[in-house]
Design a protein around this nucleic acid. Sequence first.
DNA 1: GCCAACGTTGGC
DNA 2: GCCAACGTTGGC
Length: 160
Amino acid sequence: MGKAGKRWWLFKSEPEEFSFGDLLKAPRKRTFWNGVRNYQARNLLRDEVQVGDLVLYYHSNAQPSGVAGIAEVVGAASADPTQFESGDYHEPRATKDAPVWFGVEVAAVKALPRLVALEELKASAALAQMGVVRKGNRLSVQPLTQAEFDEVVRMAARKV
DNA sequence: GCCAACGTTGGC
DNA sequence: GCCAACGTTGGC
């Protein structure tokens, strides 16, 4: 932990659950990124994602799926409160002293001028290594290179 | 709704 | 520790 320098990430969210538009409408355009229940994604949130990092906000299970906006990490990892509540996100093994699941606070930076669909991401040679275009990659928190992040932003600025 | 890909669980 | 069964993700 305690890395130097900004990093770049892609966070997936189903827009029916919480879209980028919902984030823009949220108080102070912020939300706590909760509900991650995958250990690899949790480890990234807990150990790697830092305040100041930039996030591509990806809509999954959407028509079409793709990158909708840019967000920024504004709060360091803390226990996901939903693990202590009853319901789908409850985690019986979690205690306040030893939480199992973590989240970070994110804030909307801006919507992209247009959604960059998964189909376009797949068609870009520059993005061939990006996790989301690779078959079977279901991680909801994925690291990006700065070049990948910048390329998606550039694509969004171009007409289709 | 289908199903491929992957993660998790649990019997042994 | 192996691995089959099961559950989930997410594109299509």
